[in-house]
Design a protein around this nucleic acid. Sequence first.
DNA 1: CAAACGCTCTTTTTT
DNA 2: AGAGCGTTTG
Length: 888
Amino acid sequence: MAYFPRGELVAALMNNAEHILKDLNDKQREAVLSVNGPLLVVAGPGSGKTRVLVARVAWLLADGHARPHQILAMTFTNKAAREMQERAEALLHTAGYSTQFTAGRNRLWMGTFHSMFARIIRMYAERIGFTSDFSIYDQQDSEQVVKRLMKQGGITSVKPRPVRGFISWAKNRMLKEDQIELRSDIQKVAADLMGPYDKALREANAMDFDDLLLKTYRMLRQHEDVLESCQNRWTHLLIDEFQDTNTLQYRLAQMIARNHGNICVVGDDCQSIYAFRGAEIRNILLFNQDFPKAKIVRLEQNYRSTQNILKLADSVIRHNVGRIDKTLWTSNKKGSRIPVIRANSGEAEADKVVDLIQDHMLAHGYRRRDFAILYRTNRLSRQFEDALRKAGIQYRVYGSLSFYQRKEIKDACAYLRLLVNPRDVESFIRAISIPKRGVGAVSRQAVLDFARRFEEGLPYALFHVDEIGIRSVKARRELVKFCALLDHHAERLTQQDSTVRVVESLLRESGLWEETLADVTVAAESRIENLQELLGAIEQHVSEQEGTLSSFLQQAQLATSEDESDGRADSVTLMTAHASKGLEFEVVFICGLEKGLFPVTFGEAVQAPRSGSASDKIATTRLQPGEVDFEHTDVRRALEAIAWLADPSHAARSKAASVQAAARRLAQDGPWAAVNALLDDLGAGRKKHLRLLKDALAGATADSIKEILQHADAVRLNQDVGRVTRAAAYLDAADSDACEEERRLFYVAVTRAKSRLYLLWAHRRFYAGGVRWGDPSRFFGELDATLVDLHSSGPYRPRHQVRRPRTDIPAGRRAAIRQKPMPAARQTQRVATAELFRAGDRVRHSIHGSGTVVRMAETSYGPQATVKFDKSGEKTLVLRYARLTKLT
DNA sequence: CAAACGCTCTTTTTT
DNA sequence: AGAGCGTTTG
């Protein structure tokens, strides 16, 4: 503080509590010191948000406002919670407070909303008809439940996944089944199934992620005493990433803080990226209404990024209408301009990134951990993994699959879950099926049907296997054995036997362990290691945190892959833009910036095409051959083949015996026989379509088939038109919420970068089994062009010059064409050449020297520049052939 | 009952 | 390219 002269001696005498405040700016300090009453901290990226939270917790303790167990802090990931806790403890420690705030049970309540409320609900589970050993169903589990219910109800009109998704959506908005709009089939099915779904989970003594919040909420509303004890217990609430809380989460926090109003929320509306799972940006605005006396502190100084990076981020986010206006500023240096790089393919993009990483490590001394490669969808990680592996650069992929989602771990956990919660139907299904023991779908279903007739449910059925009436002797015997196995180990668990020993024994005797051991493949080796790691984790949980197997499983179910990162290894980071929230890196690559990919656009969210469109007209024109699916590959092939055969010159030319035979059949017995001749040897799955085709073709002549074929093309065209219309409708509506969210996501990604940022897109990439052509992302059109440099890796190759498979030739011939040897691919040029320019740019050419760009034009050869060279005058150059470099 | 096979559909983010 | 599903086969 100002009235202390500087010096170590004095620092040592400085008030311990003030040590906590000394590194904060005025705004940050204000946020830390406003300990009583509601507080909203609007914190831009890199503004020291975490530092404020940490200091606030430390201050609350050090200055005597709260005891550790009175603070309830909710963060977005368990990892963030852990980090906050460790940093707060470290801060307290350096400030001279030994372990008085950090030891043993006297710890802070910190974690995600879900993990915190799982803990709370565990304490009061009996009050709402569950036991504290309830299972937590993840998305996969609950989707299985929905799927089974749909099967039972004979519902096939919609798929289980969106139904589950909608149920979850409704629960997070606290809607009951009678409050759901019944506009789509999905909504109708979801409304019908919500009741049965809830019942099924209840019978299994299980809760899904949403229940952890929803059932807590309902409990607090119904049981006044529970609410009161929560309100009295937690005198101070902190919520991080407030912009990503949903209605339910906010209401819960509000309810607990209602009396004292000591609630501090920290967030940034521009970083809200989870609306798809119910996050309400409006919570930030509502906060002001719900707590009218709320103090607002804005943190606008950015300590992370260069000026250019910050400006670029700002130039994009400005396109969002719905946002709280704020001005981020930084005293950091300006930094370099931001390269925008076009690669010809996904692989070229990855190679380019690897090149840049190597360059930067050599030239600037960066380490591997300084780099992050960000992308929109997880599946994009693969190309970067390949490239990094090839280059021998250590990397780490986040977010793909968490430890607890691995198959062998889920299998093992199924046994453990069933052990602590014998009613857990999903776990039973999984455990009984793995390893295979002769109990199949039929016997399994018999057990479940039987179980539903009894109050006690599954445990009752397992203890009365003989009464179920299962035919298979083997299945009966195995079920009894299975039951005895579980019973025996459950018994051991209640005695003083060590938890890990019981678990290990169960895994061995179930055959799971042996099966994995017996597997000689390379993959099995890591699977057995994973199982051992699981045992280790249980051991640790039991011994260090005084936990039980049951609490271990609940926590494990809520663990995410991000929670597992040790952060110590020196590796390049690969993750989705979502996963990067809250992190920072020296150098960031944002990849896959293409139309449709980032921002993503996808089918379902899109409105149906307007009536009166071209597609409607085509759809109503003639031909009604029943339910024949002209889009079906085999139908198309059959039709194409017949039409092709119908032309005598084709049939005569082909030497293949099958074609000759088919042509003969066509002449003699008509088209259907020809189809049979061609496709007879195909698999059984195709017969269904061919049967339909047969009906449609009854009495058809080769000419009428041609007509049908034309129609099929029309149908296809129609679908293309539909797709385009839908896409347009999407883009119209889109500066609506979906696109704004994508823009915020891009903003988050950009603001992760400290000193350098690269934006990349690929012209062509392999995706979902085929070649996709990408145009640059619309975000490029939105960012401040004065801040970027355009580059490419490899010569420009216009789309129309790349061969595409022809679709107007029958499949058989297409295959023949494909077998022709392809000319050797031209070697890709790996040097980055500046290639897209604006009028006025100064450029250099290897022969003509330096000059100024007069104008740019797009030709069939790709972009073309007219340049006025200082020495040789004006020249027109096609950029594909002439190599120009930009002078800065 | 389980394994093998062939076909189909995929296109997001995650507590 | 890869998972999931349904069908057929042993």
